[in-house]
Design a protein around this nucleic acid. Structure first.
Length: 158
DNA sequence: GCCAACGTTGGC
DNA sequence: GCCAACGTTGGC
């Protein structure tokens, strides 16, 4: 099982919004970056995913969600009225993918970006890289364990 | 194929 | 609000 991290601006879609969604599930539409898309496509049902609030006060990992449906075409790319519309994309060969994510649990303690900096074991974590902009990134097993420990979540339930 | 210009992301 | 990082676009 792999682990991942997705970013969202809480003013547009927060972890709380995911918890309030029907079945606590949403389609992670709108990814328009090839590297991030490729990570979406590599996600497998059951993979656990950190939910990170960017452009937030504070910026922090706030929850855990789970992949409940593997990659499928992102409908918004075909919608001419959507800001996410991609005229280059066709039904025959869709460019952009989405997955379904379901809220598992809010972290007992949100772990802020400031707190993550300097923590042993997280030196290579993508989100800590200067200028990091990828909205979907893989998280190593060690990074997952370290962050869970900081958040007060035991591995057994993560 | 190169690269400058431009737009966006996102931390601070 | 500023600005660094980075992806994309388009001229050549």
């Amino acid at each position: 099982m792999s682990h991942w991290l997705v970013k969202s601006e809480p003013t547009s879609f927060s972890y709380r919004d995911l918890e309030k969604a029907p079945k606590k599930t949403t389609s992670w539409e709108g990814v328009r970056n090839y590297a991030a898309r490729n990570f979406l496509r590599a996600m497998r049902k059951g993979d656990r995913v950190f939910f990170y609030h960017s452009n937030a006060e504070p910026n922090a990992i706030v929850g855990i969600c789970e992949v409940v449906r593997e990659a499928y075409p992102d409908e918004s790319q075909f919608d001419r009225k959507s800001e996410m519309h991609d005229p280059k994309s066709t039904r025959e060969s869709p460019t952009w993918s989405t997955v379904d994510l379901r809220a598992v649990r809010a972290l007992p303690r949100a772990v802020t970006l400031a707190e993550l900096r300097g923590v042993a074991g997280l030196e290579k974590m993508e989100i800590l890289r200067k200028g990091s902009r990828l909205s979907v990134t893989p998280v190593s097993e060690e990074e997952w364990r370290v962050v869970c420990a900081l958040a007060g979540v035991s591995d057994a339930v993560a």
